[in-house]
Design a protein around this nucleic acid. Structure first.
Length: 164
DNA sequence: CAATGGGCTGGAGTTACCTCA
DNA sequence: ACTGAGGTAACTCCAGCCCAT
């Protein structure tokens, strides 16, 4: 790698060059095609832009860094939304647990209550809390009635495809 | 075949300069 | 005119890879 190259052609201080609009456009286009350059491509691009190969190299390094930073921000937003969804889901489940506990304590109301929200119909088998046809295995629960509960929604899928 | 040293490259972090509100 | 913030070109340092010895 070229090091300390800013004093070539007698310029001792590092002068900051502002790339022209055209140069930026060409660099961006090139970056879209491939975000790294082999030495040949670098040389050709530098020649085309009237820049030193080192400048092209630096531009690509910085561009990759910017891309990564942006992606990190996007990922961060994504995780934040996941967290919010999970918090909300947790709140709901806590509430449901409370309701179920209340039901257990007062069985006289049991028959009048509508089923709790998370005991909704399984989208695949279309049953409400019914056991699978085969006998219950080692996963059967103490109550003997709890079933594998269908997931209300897929958090990751929701976060990934919020509009679908 | 494994070890080693040198050259090259990319990533991460930083600095210096420029622009603009 | 001055200033602080943000953007970015250019830098340093380091790690990883490849290749010749």
């Amino acid at each position: 790698m070229e090091r300390g190259s800013d004093e070539e052609d007698g310029e001792t201080s590092r002068k900051k060059l502002r790339l022209s609009k055209d140069q930026s456009v060409i660099l961006e286009e090139s970056f879209k095609e491939h975000n790294t350059l082999n030495p040949k491509q670098k040389l050709a691009l530098a020649k085309r832009l009237g820049l030193r190969p080192r400048q092209v190299e630096v531009w690509f390094q910085n561009r990759r860094a910017r891309t990564k930073l942006k992606q990190t921000e996007v990922d961060c937003e994504f995780l934040k939304r996941c967290c919010e969804n999970l918090t909300e889901e947790n709140r709901r489940l806590q509430k449901e647990v409370q309701e179920l506990r209340a039901l257990k304590l007062s069985p006289q109301f049991y028959m009048q209550m509508t089923p709790p929200t998370t005991l909704t119909m399984c989208p695949s088998c279309e049953r409400v809390g019914a056991p699978p046809s085969s006998s219950s295995g080692p996963t059967s629960t103490p109550m003997g009635q709890a079933q594998p509960r269908p997931m209300p929604f897929n958090l990751w899928a929701n976060a990934l495809h919020p509009r679908s």
